[in-house]
Design a binder for these strands. Structure first.
Length: 313
DNA sequence: TAAGATAAGAGGGACAT
DNA sequence: ATGTCAGTCTTATCTTA
């Protein structure tokens, strides 16, 4: 606890002066007297309070960046920032600037020294970009990073593009966690051809020896409905259609997005809600023809009668 | 203008060779 | 390993109400 005590008193554990300063951009504490750096993460190794329940622990736990799988060195390295001032806020002399720049260069080089590290750096940079574009949760990102590291272990990245594998790993993470993202979306946002992402995905599935669950049409339905701005009532009816279809195994082998869009379309028709196939097709990322085909099947198999805009079932 | 019909083609899984 | 086949989905175009 000597470390915590010293930090609480702002006292440096090396020179003993009470000159500890917190760097705003990196959240590191360091001594203004001797320059000794105490990282937040050392402090974070233990919680200084006792907690007796999960909720209480969450409440009292210190905040701060956890060691993340999605950072090439798991976030454990000190970085040399780009500030133009020294620890006390004074501007650096030009010779000092030069020295700092050299240090920063070597710091970066040592961090990305071997190719595996460089590979991860690039991959997770790409992943970070995709996270924003596709509005994904941190859990998905972590999962993707995990899958990607597994892929590297198996040597699957050799001869393949990093962004291709990262996109495939991302798709895997989405499938696994039931997050409705289509191969098309991921391919488009990562500027990789759908075909290539798909190939890498199948490779990963095979080599890592996992079985991927099929995307749940009901989750897809919820996403499409919110995107197309449909009411709860429409969703409820569509849900019953999907459940019926599922119970007679009509859903096997069908694109869940197309299926969900078709169920929503039928639901709209039954409730005399004005929605075009085009709107739903756009929201679901499938074509109108697919919706029509699924609709036909659903109508036949579930005996949904359609007579001039008045339907019942 | 929305919806239905039809046809050609891509990509992948199952299966046989 | 390679080829074939049935089934799915997409793209494109035309017709219908």
């Amino acid at each position: 606890m000597v470390l915590l005590d010293s930090i609480r008193d702002n006292r440096c554990i090396r020179c003993g002066k009470d000159l500890l300063i917190t760097d705003g951009s990196t959240a590191e504490k360091f001594c203004g007297g001797c320059g000794f750096v105490i990282t937040e993460r050392i402090v974070d190794l233990g919680s200084e309070v006792r907690a007796f329940s999960k909720e209480e622990f969450d409440d009292k736990a210190r905040t701060g960046m956890p060691a993340s799988l999605a950072v090439h060195d798991m976030g454990l390295a000190t970085v040399i920032g780009h500030e133009r001032t020294d620890a006390m806020g004074k501007p650096l002399s030009s010779s000092m600037k030069y020295t700092i720049n050299r240090l920063r260069t070597w710091d970066n080089r040592s961090k990305a020294m071997d190719s595996a590290e460089r590979n991860l750096r690039q991959a997770f940079g790409e992943l970070d970009r995709l996270r924003d574009k596709l509005a994904l949760s941190d859990a998905i990102i972590e999962k993707t990073a995990y899958i990607y590291r597994k892929g590297i272990e198996k040597g699957l990245t050799r001869g393949r593009s990093i962004s291709g594998i990262i996109a495939a790993a991302l798709y895997m993470a989405c499938r696994e966690s039931g997050t409705p993202r289509t191969l098309n979306e991921i391919a488009r946002q990562s500027n990789i051809k759908r075909k290539d992402v798909s190939r890498s995905y199948r490779l990963l599935v095979e080599e890592l020896d996992v079985t991927m669950p099929v995307l749940d049409p009901i989750k897809c339905m919820a996403r499409i409905a919110s995107q197309a701005g449909l009411s709860e009532k429409i969703k409820r009816v569509a849900l019953t259609i999907l459940e019926k279809a599922n119970s007679i195994e009509l859903t096997a082998g069908k694109d869940p997005m197309g299926l969900a869009a078709a169920a929503l379309y039928l639901s709209c028709a039954m409730n005399k809600e004005n929605t075009t196939q085009k709107t739903l097709a756009m929201a679901a990322g499938v074509t109108e023809v697919t919706i029509r085909n699924r609709c036909m099947h659903l109508k036949e198999e579930l005996h949904i009668l359609v007579q001039s805009s008045r339907e019942r079932y």
